[in-house]
Computed example of a mutant assay.
Amino acid sequence: MDALELLLNRRSVAKLEAPAPEGKALENIIRAGLRAPDHANLTPWRFVIAQGRGLQKLSDILVKAALAENSEEAVVTKLKNAPFRAPMVITVIAKVTPHEKVPALEQHLSAGCAVQAMQMAAVAQGYQGIWRSGNWMFHADVRAAFGLEGEDEIVGFLYLGTPTSTPMKAPERELSQFVEYL
Rank of each mutant, 00 (worst) to 15 (best):
A3V: 11
E5I: 08
R10E: 00
R10G: 02
R11W: 12
S12Y: 08
A14K: 08
A14C: 08
L16A: 15
E17V: 15
P21G: 13
E22N: 10
E22M: 11
G23S: 13
K24Y: 06
K24L: 07
E27L: 03
E27W: 03
E27P: 05
N28K: 04
I29M: 09
R31W: 04
L34N: 05
R35H: 07
D38N: 10
D38V: 02
A40G: 09
N41A: 01
N41E: 14
L42G: 05
T43P: 00
T43D: 01
W45V: 07
F47P: 04
F47M: 02
F47N: 01
G52S: 02
G54K: 06
G54N: 06
K57V: 08
L62C: 13
A65L: 13
E69R: 15
E72N: 15
A74K: 01
A74C: 05
V75M: 07
V75C: 04
K78E: 15
N81F: 07
F84T: 09
F84D: 04
T91A: 10
T91R: 09
I93S: 12
I93N: 11
V96F: 13
T97C: 04
P98Y: 14
P98G: 15
H99W: 13
H99K: 07
E100I: 06
K101G: 13
V102R: 07
P103C: 09
A104P: 10
L105F: 15
L105T: 13
H108L: 10
L109S: 05
A111R: 03
G112C: 11
C113M: 11
V115Q: 03
M118W: 00
M118N: 00
M120C: 02
A124L: 00
A124Q: 01
Q125C: 00
R132Y: 05
N135E: 09
F138W: 03
A145N: 02
G147A: 02
E149N: 06
D152E: 09
P163K: 15
T164S: 12
T164R: 15
S165E: 15
T166Q: 12
M168A: 11
P171G: 05
R173G: 04
E174R: 12
E174V: 05
L175W: 02
S176M: 02
Q177N: 10
Y181S: 02
L182C: 01
